[in-house]
Design a protein around this nucleic acid. Structure first.
Lengths: 213, 213
DNA sequence: CGCCCGTTTGAAACAAATCAAGTCTCGTGG
DNA sequence: CCACGAGACTTGATTTGTTTCAAACGGGCG
């Protein structure tokens, strides 16, 4: 099914909202993010993409493409062909089920983000996001000696959280001064996951059995 | 695949967050909503469900069930069997693709809600939600003489929008006094969809070719 | 060296939440 | 038949969380 491999550098655009055709990808390496913008430029980041995530499934089924995707680090992508999805569904139902699993799982993640922006206070939101990112980095095998890479600027965090940059900064400091987290050299360390989860009013189970694809 | 039909009355619970087993349904008639709650009771409504929507796909792939579903009106459901999903994927790849379409489409909807709660002002949010609900009612064939049914209380709207009840009420009034909408007897009339969409900073294409299922 | 980007800080302005009542409708029971 | 209570909606006053504005700091890089 694979038709090619692509390499994009940090900051580059992978998918553009409003565009027409679009490939289906999976992330093999690196970090990216999905986002939408309003007419006047306000940006909302919808989710962070890590290795194993699908890119462009929504674009396959809807034109124009409903959201943009941008690389946070250098990203390695695996590209699928035009009608790869249909071929897959016809010939490999068990893999098709995996695709659905991934899709439903992504929705679960956005659901949780919606709960954050809708009902959590700034402190809870930031805490929840950091817990989430730490866990994701962890299952991706990126946690080393208790720290996870965090290739997002505070501006990215703000646009993920639906907060202003300034307030995100202040809230982050509250968490640091409270001893809940450490942030240095682009890496995140969490004092105690359970404690921080409680701060976040967060009670999400770990994403269970992700298919390999 | 169908194993039964269920009828639930307004206000009844269809799916409960944290539960174990759960059936897969589709809505045949009526309105329902998907939501999550925080430990202290704050509620965020994730999406409104209308005829044609799947219920419990996420529950099929994740235990415990990640969200609750409650009926807004009397709801008629079509229930599928235990391993209906797998059977479907194995024997009817084209229908499997439809399921994926529905799943990806639902995510698109939640994405848009996330943009609202994250980046839109209260006025924009309310306008966007009303436009969205009107359009959905419209494609479901529920619009009559320019008015759509709106079986949600202001409390539901508030929990969908991530706003307080009081502020939702005041914002609704602004839209009414501005002549953008009319609200009477549980039905919604929109003066001009394009105008209201502009108020909402909303530029979403209509959900295109929904499969029948 | 000077510039750009990301981060930090302070002060002022504002949007939205909260608190507290009050109205209206509708269904229920005395 | 009417008093009662519950639920939905409305209103005003006040407080607070968050944004906006403005500026400064530090590091990396050409």
């Amino acid at each position: 099914m694979k038709v090619g491999q692509a390499m994009v550098s940090a900051g580059a655009s992978i998918l553009h909202e409003g565009g027409r055709a679009a490939h289906l990808f999976t992330v093999l390496r690196g970090w990216a993010f999905r986002y939408k913008t309003l007419p006047d430029g306000r940006r909302q980041i919808l989710n962070i993409l890590l290795p194993g995530d699908l890119v462009g499934l929504q674009a396959e089924i809807a034109t124009p493409v409903p959201h943009s995707v941008e690389a946070l680090t250098e990203v390695e992508l695996c590209a699928f062909g035009e009608d790869a999805l249909w071929t897959l569904y016809r010939d490999h139902p068990e893999l098709a089920l995996d695709v659905t699993w991934l899709s439903a799982n992504e929705e679960r993640i956005v659901d949780e983000a919606l709960v954050s922006t809708g009902r959590r206070t700034a402190l809870e939101r930031v805490a929840a996001l950091l817990v989430y990112l730490y866990k994701r980095a962890s299952v991706a095998g990126l946690v080393q000696s208790g720290t996870a890479p965090l290739p997002l600027t505070q501006s990215h965090l703000a646009d993920t959280l639906g907060l202003s940059l300034v307030h995100t900064n202040r809230t982050l400091q509250r968490l640091r001064k409270g001893g809940f987290i450490r942030l240095e050299e682009g890496r995140l360390a969490i004092g105690d996951l359970t404690t921080l989860s409680r701060v976040a009013a967060y009670w999400e189970a770990v994403p269970s059995n992700r298919p390999l694809l």
